[in-house]
Simulated scan of single mutants.
Amino acid sequence: MTEIYSTRLAASLKLGIVQTSLDPAAAWVTGTKMSPGEEERAITEIRGFFAAFRQEKIPPDIIVLPELAVPSGFETQLRRMAGQMQSVVIAGFDYRDGGSPGEVHNEALLIVPKRWRDRAMGAKVTTRRIGKTYAAPEEDKKLRAIAHTFQRDPSVWLFDGGEIGTFGVMVCYDFLDLERIAMYRGKVQHLFILALNKDATSFRHVAEAVARMAFCNVIICNCGHFGGSLAVSPYRLSERRTIYQHAGPSLATAQIIELPVASLDLHQHGADPMKDGVKEFKSLPPGYIFSTVLIERLAGIV
């Protein structure tokens, strides 16, 4: 089993996390597009962080940016920057108008450069739109107040990253969808959540729980105005489980981290990798490898 899985996957995934400081209260004052001032600030921060990442001898495999962090008019430039970095970029974009008046989409854009991890990927940069299924209650309320309707996208995406493993992408409130989490269970090494979330503490608790139940790396890239970006992995030792966490409001920051891939995949398939004589990961959750059909029973106690 070691030979089957460890040889096809890299030891780790190199991830760049960008936390922009976009102020939601200032960004969408009159409609569903960023104000010019916030748009200019967002672009300046993104360019600066990508310039810092370019100083790396080996670029990040993937770069993630928060929900609604990228102005819609910056897509062409971001595609070009992904190509220059030779990094896959997963970014939350500003609201996109739907097919009917008043409809808007909240989407992430996955950008695959022409060259990635030292090999050709295609003749041109390719993209995939990942729509949000459920608007957060406050988001839905604000959109309705300006006569707009949130357009749902019911898709659940699985991406084959080759050597860096399989991953899923969710946009903010969809992270609380139990059916979606169950669909990812046993199928991914990484879950990326692009967020604009005030309650970073609750999302941290959910991330820790999902890392155990879906048994994968969970990465939350949150808006820096609220803070709380983090990455957790289901390591056995508690001091290793939080790979990255950035707390504090109104902070723009970027960080490069490494996430386990091959050893995690080994454990997902029933092996028990060791590090310094200690088991690397927690035990797999019940039902992960095999499941028993559960029977619902109803009984009264009065």
Rank of each mutant, 00 (worst) to 15 (best):
M1N: 05
S6A: 14
L9H: 13
A10H: 15
S12A: 15
L15D: 14
G16T: 08
V18H: 06
L22R: 10
A25G: 06
T32I: 14
T32R: 03
E39G: 00
T44E: 08
E45V: 02
F50H: 10
A51P: 01
Q55W: 09
K57C: 00
P59L: 12
P60D: 14
I62W: 05
I63C: 06
V64P: 01
V64Q: 04
L65H: 02
L65E: 05
E67N: 04
G73Q: 14
F74E: 11
E75S: 06
T76M: 07
L78E: 09
M81H: 08
Q84N: 06
V88G: 01
V89E: 09
F93Q: 12
D94S: 06
Y95N: 03
Y95A: 02
G98I: 03
S100T: 13
L110K: 13
I111S: 07
K114N: 10
K114C: 10
R115H: 07
R115E: 13
M121T: 11
G122T: 06
A123L: 11
T127Y: 07
T127A: 00
R128K: 10
T133E: 14
A135L: 02
K141E: 13
L143I: 06
A145L: 07
A147S: 11
T149K: 04
S155C: 07
V156K: 10
T166W: 15
T166Y: 14
F167L: 07
V169S: 05
M170L: 15
D174R: 04
F175Q: 05
L176H: 07
D177T: 03
L178W: 13
E179F: 03
A182H: 13
M183D: 12
K187L: 14
L191G: 04
I193R: 03
N197K: 02
D199F: 06
S202Y: 13
E208A: 12
V210A: 10
A211C: 02
M213F: 06
C216K: 11
I219R: 12
N222D: 12
N222Q: 09
H225L: 05
G228V: 02
S229R: 01
S229L: 01
S229K: 01
A231Y: 09
S233F: 06
Y235A: 05
L237E: 15
R240F: 11
Y244D: 03
Y244P: 00
Q245F: 14
P249G: 00
L259Q: 11
L259D: 08
V261H: 05
V261C: 12
L264P: 01
D265K: 04
D265P: 02
L266S: 13
H267E: 15
Q268C: 05
H269R: 14
G270Q: 10
G270D: 10
D272C: 03
M274W: 10
K275L: 14
E280L: 11
L284Q: 08
P285W: 09
P286E: 12
F290N: 11
V293Y: 09
R297E: 13
L298E: 13
A299V: 15
V302I: 13
